[in-house]
């Protein structure tokens, strides 16, 4: 029997809520690996992240300070956790924490913790606020956008755009607005939650489609699976989706990864117009929460990411099953007060 490689992998994003983080599907995927024997350390920010209590998937859980408390606080805490758990690899799954972890990559490596993340340049240039320049640099179709730094900027929107427009937070949240009043309301809500700038984007009519992909950092696409959301929550999250056989989407993905030499997981959010053009709405610099669909369709991308990070050989995926569907569901877990008490008072469980 093949000897499985023993690893300790720390994962964030255990918030399997109606706005789900990718942590649990990532863990589920690497647990299914035939070549890896993984101990999973969950890193959480809130005491009610459901993944904390999924004890058959997560071996140990630690609270982390929010990235807004500064990288020193995060690294101090990680150092304590590492001392106890000997983490081999860290897979962060939130956009908002990526900056901290990418900036700390060297320190983490010195501690003995590997990551497999995009570079700071890659992270910055695909940022929603920089999407125009990104499109121009790589000759890609992107909706026009403008950053809103002040409330007064809202008046300038109709100089550049026709309503409706999309109003987006720099990390999360996107709303459609049909007039200035609606933009203002979204601006206030989004800026309070995610800070500035708030981004206004041209509204592109069409069907939203997505791709989950993994780049090796050398310009090669290790795997990519396109999907269309079939059931969307009021937060715009996929609650059901289906894999597509779409060479245009795959070609676009390969092009982006080749041009940017992308390293790590990626989600492309695309809008397909009626005349079959693909606009890039967003490039999310991490694995998306629906990644388990790709696993079910034949591409275990989280496992491949772990192997790449650990310097193991990974053969690029060349196929996947079309027409595979995921349907998400909610499930009420019954938790013992003692577990909640432990994570709340000791910050670990």
């Amino acid at each position: 029997m093949e000897n499985k490689k023993k690893l300790v992998v720390a994962v964030t994003g255990l918030n399997n809520t109606d706005n789900p983080g990718p942590g649990i599907p990532v863990i589920r995927a690497i647990r299914e690996s035939s070549g890896l024997d993984v101990k999973v350390v969950g890193l959480v920010y809130e005491t009610l992240e459901p993944g904390i209590y999924l004890r058959d998937l997560v071996d140990k859980v630690y609270m982390l300070p929010y990235p807004s408390e500064g990288s020193e606080a995060v690294l101090d805490r990680l150092s304590y956790i590492h001392h106890r758990e000997h983490i081999d690899l860290l897979i962060p799954n939130f956009d908002a924490e990526l900056y901290t972890f990418i900036k700390s990559e060297k320190v983490l490596h010195e501690m003995g913790i590997r990551t497999f993340l995009p570079t700071l340049e890659q992270l910055e240039e695909r940022h929603k606020g920089n999407l125009d320049a990104f499109g121009e640099k790589y000759d890609l179709l992107v909706p026009e956008s403008m950053p809103l730094l002040y409330e007064n900027d809202i008046r300038k929107i109709d100089e550049k755009f026709e309503y409706p427009v999309m109003v987006k937070g720099k990390f999360y949240d996107a709303y459609i607005a049909y007039n200035e009043e609606q933009v203002l309301s979204h601006f206030n809500k989004i800026s309070a939650k995610w800070g500035l700038p708030v981004i206004v984007q041209e509204f592109i009519r069409g069907t939203e489609v997505n791709v989950v992909a993994l780049g090796d950092g050398q310009g090669n696409t290790v795997g990519a699976v396109p999907m269309r959301k079939q059931y969307i929550t009021d937060k715009g999250k996929a609650w059901g989706g289906i894999t597509l056989d779409n060479p245009d989407m795959l070609e676009l993905t390969h092009r982006i990864i080749r041009a940017t030499r992308w390293r790590g997981g990626m989600e492309l959010e695309l809008m397909r117009t009626d005349d079959d053009q693909y606009y890039i709405l967003e490039i999310n610099p991490r694995i998306p929460a629906w990644v388990y669909l790709a696993v079910g369709a034949g591409q275990n991308l989280p496992e491949a990411l772990v192997k790449l990070a650990m310097g193991m050989e990974v053969e690029p995926f060349t196929s996947y099953e079309t027409g595979k569907i995921f349907v998400r569901y909610s499930w009420d877990m019954i938790i013992d007060m003692k577990d909640f008490e432990k994570i709340s008072t000791k910050g670990e469980i």
Binding site: M227, R228, G241, I242, T243, L244, D245, N246, R272, G323
Partner: peptide, 17 residues
């Protein structure tokens, strides 16, 4: 060409889902 039609009358377009 890629449109699938099953015996039960289920039609699937794999490029759009």
């Amino acid at each position: 060409k890629n449109i699938a039609v099953s015996d039960t009358g289920f039609v699937f377009d794999p490029s759009t889902g």
